[in-house]
Amino acid sequence: MKKINQNEYQKMVSHLGKSPWITNVIWAFFVGGAICVIGQVIIDTAKNMGISQEDAGCIASISLIFLSGLFTGFGLFDKLAKRAGAGTLVPITGFANAVISPAMEFKTEGYVLGLGAKMFVIAGPVIVYGISSSILCGLIYFFMKGGM
């Protein structure tokens, strides 16, 4: 066989298997938007019951995480996500799914070293870099405000 030029081959490959991005974007927009609306409905309902803005936000997060977990448990989340893509990934529902799905999956390796240890195998980086960046920015903020 003639030697394959890696760059030329890469070019050949890149023409094949294009993703249907327009459909993906439409799905992502509507599903992602809809999830945010559900969040807004929960916040408004809670506020109408006299709960503070901050606590209402918490309740919305918890409810969405619960719903996402329920969908994941019943095997429906991935069916929706297959179409919605980033629409289910980017809202907090995606974070919850990323926590719950490995926990379910690795239950067969035990409750401690399977379920417990693998729970953050996908979502862990979000927490690691989220918290670390908030501390770094916090340090800068602290000293810029004059410290102490």
């Binding site: 298997g17 989340f77 996500a81 490995p102």
Partner: peptide, 16 residues
């Protein structure tokens, strides 16, 4: 589960 993601993880599989 060995090579990719948990079964219930919501991801999109590329066309390829």
């Amino acid at each position: 589960r060995q090579f990719r993601f948990p079964l219930e993880y919501g991801g999109q599989r590329p066309q390829s």
